[in-house]
């Protein structure tokens, strides 16, 4: 089944990393991508611009309202994601442990709904 891995981290703290540290982290992500592809679990992965670039949109009574900023102000912000194809949650937890951001932030695992599977 497919799982989405939402990578949360503290943007403020991440902004203070040195170029060397940033490079090392990028290399770690490239390594993870290669491993996930080689093991045939990779579906997609992307990094996101900081929440300062976020725009939130809602429609009420047919009127579109657009505001600056993320959906919610939180201590850690969504910075990127993976979608991987895993056998079960245990395998997904193992992959989550390999995502470089797990060392300073939090990785949230969300199973993706399979519309061909039985629903309630």
């Amino acid at each position: 089944m497919q799982y989405m891995f939402l990578i949360y981290g503290n943007e403020k703290a991440e902004a203070t990393t040195t170029p060397e540290e940033g490079q090392a982290e990028m290399q770690a992500y490239f390594g993870l991508n290669a491993e996930a592809r080689a093991k045939n679990v990779y579906v997609v992965a992307e990094a996101l611009h900081p929440t300062s670039s976020a725009t939130s949109v809602r429609s009420r009574d047919g009127k579109l309202m657009t505001t600056d900023g993320p959906f919610a102000e939180t201590r850690e912000q969504l910075g990127g994601f993976y979608i991987l194809n895993c056998k079960d949650l245990d395998e997904a937890i193992e992959w989550a442990g390999k995502i470089p951001g797990v060392k300073h932030g939090t990785v949230e695992i969300r199973p993706i709904v399979d519309f061909s599977a039985p629903q309630n």
């Binding site: 056998k87 245990d90 997904a92 695992i109 199973p111």
Partner: peptide, 13 residues
Amino acid sequence: RKIRDAGIPYQVP
């Protein structure tokens, strides 16, 4: 439901 939907495995680790 979480066991089913999140794919918590039925196995000895």
